[in-house]
Design a protein around this nucleic acid. Sequence first.
DNA 1: TCTGGGGTCCTAGGACCC
DNA 2: TCTGGGGTCCTAGGACCC
Length: 440
Amino acid sequence: MSRQKLFALVDCNNFYVSCERLFRPGLNGRPVVVLSNNDGCIIARSNEAKALGIQMGAPYFKTRELIRRHAVEVFSSNYALYGDLSSRVMEVLQQLESEVEIYSIDEAFLSLPPSRFIDLPNHCRAIRERVRQCVGIPVSLGVASTRTLAKIANQSAKKDPGRAGVCCLESPAAIDELLARTAVGDIWGIGPRSVDKLRRRGITTGLQLKQVDENWVRCQLTISGLRTVMELRGISCIEIDDSRIRKQSLVCSRSFGRPVTELSELREALSAYVSRAAEKLRAQSSLASCLHVFLLTNRFRSDLPQYSRHLTLSLAGPSSSTPSLLRPALKGLEQLFKTGYSYKKVGVMLTGLVPAARRQLSLFAPQAASDTTLMLAMDQINHRWGRDTLYYAGTGQERAWAGRQAFESPAYTTDWEALPRVGSEPSGVNGKGRLRPTGR
DNA sequence: TCTGGGGTCCTAGGACCC
DNA sequence: TCTGGGGTCCTAGGACCC
């Protein structure tokens, strides 16, 4: 038994699909997929859907025939549900282990102390069972001496029958055996570009990558690639910085449900995204110094004229007030806008984020204290009564440009009106359990 | 007809400084 | 004919991740 510190990667199985199944147990054993925003691409698949050959990221409209033929159940993404269940899973993990790094909505790394080295597999099975019991989401665990190896172990825990959701890589022989069966493209940090470079050098497996010349990797795959190689060798050198809860940049952007040609509609959409971005900014107590607006047409429509521009604007001073971000954003949009194009997407990115507490006051710009008070009141009202209870009129009433979400499930766990009912038919709601209409 | 959204890190090169 | 050397900071773009 090694005395080295170990990492466990806990990964929720087919997370979005598992969330949908939680309240529709009849879907267990059946093929299920979840779509991206605007019902564009497939972003989650049940094992049964994977077995049908449905690819991750495949456009929905290209898969529709296959989906119809096999009666695959389809869902629009429901982030209210997934976000809530994710935080419940993480909470359970935090109760069980002292060091938990939340890596994404469905993954967390645990540090297992040396005392745990006794019967590691049993310990992992207990964690798995606890999450299943408390939240109902199935998870898999991969354990190894580095995060990269833990990721690889986790893939094996999921894929290889007989592992039953747990794979502990303890002996060097077990590590090399698994690496020899792992394609370089399946290794965390090795993307398509790196796969090409490695293949040209004759490297296709994890074991080959582990043995590659360091200088070559440093030159070809940069320091990031070298870190991955060191991790394969069992030297831990990738840290997860979850102390940085505050983002360094914020983006808000969506594809339109249909082509948009009018400036008035673009103004509404951009106003909505700027409002949302400003809310996120205030939620993490930051101010933005810089604002980028972008506008683009549908790049897949090669038969239509293409347009894609962005504009960077420095703000008079760091701010998180919606109106002080809206004004320059809309001015920027007018500069970007050209008639005669069918637009697909508009968006905003906020950068140069600084903590609100460390605001650098300007000698010249007027300080808008009233704005701060107003925003605080607005955020409190929207928190208490639900998003968009109060909103800026410029974000529009009808929102005809909004994306499609034809297959959305109820927000079972975050909306009183959407609570599942036992023993009686839901009354007066169209199966979606919503009090308010989906639009405005 | 229909192809997601939101992040991070690294590097090279330019601007600028002494 | 000859034209330094070494820094830092910023930005755009590439690559990758979920």
